[in-house]
Design a protein around this nucleic acid. Structure first.
Ligand SMILES: [Mn+2]
Ligand SMILES: [Mn+2]
Ligand SMILES: [Zn+2]
Ligand SMILES: [Zn+2]
Lengths: 140, 140
DNA sequence: GGTGCAGATGCAACCCTGTTGCGCTTGCAG
DNA sequence: CTGCAAGCGCAACAGGGTTGCATCTGCACC
């Protein structure tokens, strides 16, 4: 998404929550919208380098965005979370995780199966994640 | 698995690798065999509390067991790895992760689908993980 | 356009999971 | 038995994320 459009969309979505509209929230959501792929905390810090936002504030803003349903948190094997703007439902498709560089992306064309009908006694299924692991184009 | 049997099986498997047979390797593998479910580093430390093993050694032994194919490493959303004795292939079935307590267990009856045939240009799929998230019996 | 205050921010210090470096110990081949 | 490569324990470190607390600010209310 273009810079200008990202800023406008971010402003509209943050306003729509009815919660406080702050520069950090606007800037972080716009940064997520500008990137297509899932971004780690570290990558976002770099994107926001000009007039940087505090490390902790960035964590808190990301939590808030996830809590508001404006962002998704994807956990990957390298123990670092990735975030995407909530343009899509991420429970309906699989995600790819590069074994080499840790990059994460949505495999929109790979659908996830439905929740398993039979669970062990007392267990309740709430969600399903399908992760394809391998080597990305950049690392091949 | 019973304590006595776990020790015997562990001894046989460690010997069979042709590598050095050390007390730490025997004790850790036996601990994994005694537990049915996936165990975190922390849980294993507690299991081995009597005459404890060094924290770093435990990490190194777990790495070694995984490298030898005697244990599987399962990564979960709480950023702590879990380990199981390699009695089963863990790429063929789904895993359950409790959203509340972090417990992980094998859903042997839930089979994973085959690797997706079509991947984005330049991407190579090597493995597939299916994770069901929800609330476990203990947390319900 | 003020004003008050809940809630957001920045900073420092912290926690958890896992690693690295290095000197000492030990399994085991010969 | 002996030598030594491999394994072990300890201390220090690293990355990713959290907590406590003082200060600042969006915005509801006037
Ligand atoms: Mn997705
Ligand atoms: Mn399994
Ligand atoms: Zn890659
Ligand atoms: Zn639970």
């Amino acid at each position: 998404m273009q810079r200008r459009q990202a800023e406008q969309v971010a402003a509209a979505r943050v306003r729509a929550t009815g919660e406080r509209v702050t520069p950090a929230r606007l800037r972080v959501l716009a940064a997520l919208l500008r990137r297509g792929e899932a971004a780690s905390h570290h990558e976002l810090e770099r994107d926001l380098a000009a007039d940087a936002i505090d490390r902790v504030t960035l964590y808190r803003v990301l939590d808030w965005l996830v809590g508001q349903g404006l962002a998704h948190r994807i956990s990957s094997a390298d123990r670092a979370w990735r975030f995407t703007a909530a343009d899509r439902r991420h429970d309906a498709h699989a995600h790819f995780h590069c074994n080499r560089c840790g990059k994460v992306l949505c495999l929109d064309e790979v659908k996830t199966p439905r929740l398993p009908a039979a669970m062990p006694r007392g267990f309740r299924a709430e969600g399903l994640e399908v992760t394809v692991k391998g080597i990305c184009a950049g690392c091949a």
